[in-house]
Design a protein around this nucleic acid. Structure first.
Lengths: 228, 228
DNA sequence: GCAAATTAATGATTTATTCAAG
DNA sequence: CTTGAATAAATCATTAATTTGC
C-alpha cells in the first residue's frame, strides 16, 4: 500500500472533473495555458514529478490558478500528454538510432543541437525567472536579455512540489523552468542572474532597480518576499 | 589590496598579446568564436568574472582552445567588449526608464519578455550542457530537445574560474551557460536534466544512452569523468 | 500588410493494456 | 479468473503558427 495517494479515480472516459474554468458560454473551448503556466508545468515535470498524485495535482492547479483559470482536469491531462509525448519522442529517437547510427545527426537536428541554440545567433531570447513568496503566491518574474539564455543557479532546489508551501523563510524561484529555493530577503540580482537582468512584474511593467539589481520600491501584491 | 592579481599591463590600445591563433596566412582574419566558446565565455562573465586577470585570461584561453584556435588577446578583447556593451545596454535601459516609465513595456519587449520566449511557441531550442573532466578538458555536450529550455541544477556551483583546474573528483558542467560543479561518476542524466535529454558529442554525434540517460559506452577523448 | 488557407502543436477523448486484490 | 483502478497509446478536435495570394 505504498502507492497510497495515487489514483485519480477517473482516469479514463467520463469526465468527473469540473468541465472547464471558462464560464463564457456553451461553446466548449479547450484550455490554453499561459506561457508562464507551461513554464511551471515543465518545471515540475522536469524536477521529477511526472505523474502527480491527486493531491499534488490539486496543489499544482492552485499554483497555476494564480495565473489564470485552470482545473484539476487540465493539469491531469497535461501531465498525461506530457508523459505520453515524451515517451513517444524517446521511442522514435531510439528507433531511428538502431536503424542507422548515422541518423544520429538527424536526431540531433531535431533537438536543436549545440549549434543553433546557444549564443552567436542574434536571437535574443530571455531567461525566465519567477519569484514566489512562502505560500507559492506568484509575485513577479525576471527576464534577462542578452546574447544567450543563461542564469545563475540559486542555492537549494525543491524537487518536491508538495513542499511548495513549506520552507518558511525561503522563496521558490523558477529559473528557465527549474524550481529553486533561495533564502528570502534582499538579494543582489545582478550577482545572482548576471549583469543585464531585468525585473518584470507579472503585469508586464518593468520594476525599477538599483545598480545591484535590487528593487527600489517594495512590491504591491503578495507579501514582500523580496527586499523591502 | 584585495585586487591583487589584476592588471594586464596592456589594457587598452597596443596589443602585446600574441596576434591571433590562426596561422592560415597574411590576411588577418578576426576570431570567430564557436557557439560553445561563447557559451563558456558568457558563463564565466555571468558567474561574476567580468574582468579576468592575466592568469585567468590564460586559463580561459586554454579552456577555449579545446574547441578551436584562440589567443589570449581574443579572450581579453571579448571581455573588454562584453563589459562595454553590457554597460551601454544598462545606460540605455536606465535612460529609457527615467524618460518615460511606461517605456518599460518596450524595454521588456527587447528582452524577449515572458510571453514569446518560453514554451507554447513551436521553436524548439535546446538547453546546452557541457561536461568537463577534472582538468577542464572538454568532453562532450548535452543537448535537450523539448518544449522549453530548462535544466536541473547540479549541486555545487563554481563561480571562480581560477578554480577550474582544482576540485578533484568533480566535473565542471555548463548548463545553459552557467558553470556548475558536480561530483564525478555515473549520473542519471534523465533524473538530472529531464526526460528527453540527449547526449551530443562535440563532434556532433549523438551518444547512445540507456533508459536513464546514462552513457552506454565510455568516452573516447579525455579521461572518463562520466560513467564507464 | 492583411486575411484566408494550410500546417503544426497540443488539449481532450477514447480504447487498450497492465497489475493487484479478491 | 474476474474485476476495477490506473496508465499508456492512439485518436479526435481545436487552437496557435505559418504560409500564401492578394
Amino acid at each position: 500500500m505504498e502507492d497510497s495517494n495515487r489514483g485519480h479515480s477517473n482516469s479514463s472516459s467520463l469526465q468527473r472533473f469540473a468541465p472547464n474554468g471558462n464560464v463564457t458560454g456553451p461553446v466548449r473551448t479547450r484550455w490554453t495555458p499561459k506561457a508562464e503556466q507551461i513554464l511551471i508545468l515543465e518545471s515540475i515535470f522536469n524536477s521529477g514529478v511526472v505523474n502527480p498524485t491527486k493531491d499534488e495535482t490539486a496543489t499544482i492547479r492552485r499554483l497555476l490558478e494564480q495565473l489564470g483559470p485552470v482545473g484539476d482536469a487540465n493539469v491531469f491531462y497535461w501531465f498525461q500528454n506530457r508523459r505520453s509525448r515524451s515517451r513517444r519522442r524517446q521511442r522514435q529517437l531510439q528507433a531511428s538510432l538502431v536503424a542507422d547510427p548515422r541518423a544520429a545527426g538527424v536526431a540531433q537536428q531535431v533537438g536543436g543541437g549545440v549549434q543553433s541554440s546557444s549564443a552567436s545567433s542574434s536571437s535574443s531570447s530571455a531567461a525566465n525567472v519567477m519569484l514566489m513568496d512562502d505560500s507559492a503566491q506568484y509575485l513577479f518574474s525576471v527576464s534577462r536579455m542578452g546574447l544567450m539564455e543563461s542564469t545563475q543557479s540559486p542555492v537549494v532546489r525543491s524537487s518536491d512540489v508538495s513542499q511548495l508551501h513549506h520552507q518558511p523563510g525561503t522563496v521558490t524561484v523558477f529559473i528557465d523552468g527549474v524550481l529553486n529555493e533561495v533564502p528570502s530577503g534582499p538579494k543582489d540580482l545582478r550577482a545572482m542572474f548576471g549583469q543585464d537582468v531585468l525585473l518584470v512584474h507579472s503585469s508586464g511593467e518593468l520594476l525599477p532597480v538599483n545598480e545591484h539589481g535590487i528593487l527600489v520600491q517594495s512590491l504591491q501584491m503578495g507579501r514582500k518576499a523580496y527586499l523591502e
